[in-house]
């Protein structure tokens, strides 16, 4: 008897006992557990809906950016969600906390991206709870790779591609060292460590060069900036992106919608408050009247 009150499973498909009699192999793998519970991890599309390979263009209308600063990583995103040329929503959260020391910034199909973030969060927790230890940094990176690869068929059909930036803080870093780490993924799930910064989404092409400039020739190098300096730099970058990219929103003064900024540091993931953002935005845009 395993009754979980799930109406979709009333037919009996998900009614097996989970552990004691079923004897599933225990290695703390949350995806195995979901498969066992008959949770549909993939959306199956009929083959005729597949687009021609050559036409594929992964939609990722947004701008998300992460920079390594003095205390760790600052990771940020604009708030606009679009469909074609329409603005659908202006309060989208594109930077999501995954656990105490990691956050994910998403560009691409929101439905799949949120699902990936959710599976990731639950996977890390499940590993810790079942195996009685935290999943290693490399283990966390691999988990995200697997999820992106699982989603490949959707990405290839041009409707569900997701390209995230993953920011973590490595607690094993020396006390005086910076444990902040930024990883960038491609559509196949390969991950690359970016040392100073990463940006993705349709607006990213407008700011990548600026980031490079700041990192290399800026008055204060990105990795030496304090929280305030890094936040001001990021607010300016997102402002540039919104200037040239229709799918990226700027600061909306009428309703006070700011970009999302989070810090990933030794003390955990923190969201920069609206009050701080308002003050820093005024500094970032000295000529703008509120």
């Amino acid at each position: 008897m395993h009754y979980n009150g799930d109406f979709l499973n009333l037919s009996g498909a998900g009614h097996q006992e989970l552990a004691p009699h079923g004897g599933i192999n225990h290695k703390g793998d949350f995806l195995d557990l979901l498969r066992y519970a008959k949770y549909p991890l993939k959306i199956e599309l009929p083959p005729e809906t597949a687009r021609h390979g050559a036409d594929v263009e992964i939609a990722h209308s947004t701008t998300v950016v992460a920079v390594l600063y003095r205390d760790g990583v600052m990771i940020a995103g604009d708030r606009r969600a679009t469909a074609g040329t329409s603005v659908i929503y202006d309060r989208a959260e594109k930077v999501l906390q995954i656990d105490r020391h990691s956050a994910l910034a998403i560009s691409g199909s929101p439905a799949i991206a949120y699902e990936i973030a959710r599976i990731l969060e639950h996977s890390f927790q499940y590993f810790r709870r079942s195996q009685l230890q935290e999943l290693s940094l490399e283990g966390k990176l691999r988990m995200l790779s697997r999820l992106i690869r699982e989603n490949l068929s959707m990405a290839l059909q041009g409707i569900g591609g997701v390209i995230p930036i993953f920011a973590l803080y490595d607690l094993n870093a020396d006390d005086d060292g910076n444990g902040g780490k930024i990883f960038f993924y491609d559509a196949l799930g390969a991950h690359f460590e970016n040392v100073d910064f990463a940006t993705t989404g349709s607006g990213s092409i407008w700011i990548r060069g600026v980031l490079r400039y700041l990192s290399r020739f800026g008055e204060t190098a990105l990795h030496e900036m304090d929280q305030r300096q890094a936040a001001i730099a990021i607010l300016r970058l997102l402002d540039i992106a919104s200037e040239y990219d229709a799918a990226t929103s700027g600061y909306n003064a009428k309703v006070k919608i700011f970009p999302t900024l989070k810090t990933v540091t030794r003390t955990g993931v923190n969201t920069v408050s609206d009050d701080d953002l308002a003050a820093w935005y005024a500094e970032a845009q000295p000529n703008v009247e509120e």
Binding site: N4, D6, L18, H122, Q125, R129, S130
Partner: peptide, 13 residues
Amino acid sequence: MLVTDTASVQGFQ
């Protein structure tokens, strides 16, 4: 493991 698995799946679904 029985109770952890059950809670994890239900908490996710």
